[in-house]
Computed example of a mutant assay.
Amino acid sequence: MDLKTIMAAGLSVSEKFNISFTVILTGFVVVFTVLILLILIIAAYGKIVSSAQNKSKAKKEAKAAAEKAAKATEKSAPAPAPVQKVAPSNGLTDEIVAVIAAAVDSTYGVGNAKIKSIKKSPSSGRPAWGQVGVIDNTRPF
C-alpha cells in the first residue's frame, strides 16, 4: 500500500497508527541489521589484515635473524687499522679530531678512509647554513 491508498481507504486512526508503526519498526530493524552486518564485516576484515601483517612481519624477522646468523658464522669484521695520531693543527683539540674521524668513518665505512690532515674550509663571509640556502635558492630548475 502506498500513502495515497492508505489515506483514501478511510482507515481509522488506530489502523493508520498500526500501519505507520509497522513501517517505522521495519525500517529500524532493516537499518540496524545492516549496520551490525557492516560492523561484523569490518571487524573480520581487520582481523584478516592484522594476521597477514603479523605473518609478513614474522617472516621478515626470521629472514633478518637468518642473515645475522649467516654473517656471524662468516669471518668477523676486519680488525681496524691502527690509530694514527693526527697532530692538532689550527687549534683543534683531540675531541674535535675524534668527532671528525667518527663522522668520516660513519660516512665511508670502517677502515675505508684515512684522515691525513684537517683543514678549515674557506669561508665566504657567510655562515655555512646561509651559504647552503643561497645555493639552494639560486640553483637553476
Rank of each mutant, 00 (worst) to 15 (best):
K114Y: 05
K68D: 06
I24A: 15
L11R: 01
A113P: 00
I41E: 03
V23E: 08
S76P: 04
S76A: 15
A101D: 05
D94W: 05
V132A: 14
P82N: 08
A103Q: 12
V30P: 01
A101F: 02
A8V: 03
N112P: 02
V134L: 10
S56C: 00
F141P: 00
S89L: 04
V134G: 00
N137V: 05
A98V: 02
S106M: 10
V104R: 01
P80Q: 07
A87P: 01
W129G: 00
R139N: 05
I39D: 05
L37A: 14
G91V: 08
K116S: 11
G133W: 11
V13I: 10
V29T: 09
R139I: 08
M7S: 09
N18S: 12
V13P: 03
L92D: 01
D105A: 11
N112M: 11
A102E: 15
R139K: 11
G125L: 02
P80E: 07
Q131I: 03
P88E: 03
S123E: 03
G130H: 04
R139G: 02
V132I: 13
K85T: 15
S76F: 10
K116I: 14
S14P: 00
D94G: 08
P140C: 00
K60M: 13
M1G: 15
T5W: 01
A101V: 12
P78W: 04
V31Y: 13
K119N: 07
W129S: 09
L35M: 11
A8T: 13
T5H: 09
P127K: 07
A9W: 02
N112G: 03
G27S: 13
A70M: 06
T73I: 10
A101L: 02
K75H: 10
S14W: 04
F28Q: 09
S20Q: 04
S50L: 11
F17E: 06
A70F: 07
K119D: 09
A81P: 02
E67Y: 11
G111I: 00
G133H: 10
A66R: 05
Y108M: 12
S14Q: 13
F32M: 09
L25D: 14
A44G: 11
E67D: 12
A87G: 04
G91N: 09
G125P: 02
T73M: 12
A128M: 10
P140K: 08
N90T: 10
A79D: 08
K75R: 14
S56N: 08
V97Q: 01
I24C: 06
R126H: 07
D2T: 09
G109M: 00
G133Q: 12
V31F: 14
L37K: 03
V34A: 07
K16I: 15
P127W: 00
A128Y: 08
V13C: 00
S56W: 00
V34K: 03
V86H: 02
K57I: 15
K68T: 00
A79S: 11
I41L: 09
A128F: 11
G27F: 04
A69L: 11
G10H: 03
K4S: 12
D2Q: 06
F21M: 08
I100K: 01
Q84V: 15
T5Y: 03
K47D: 14
Q131S: 06
P140I: 03
G111S: 13
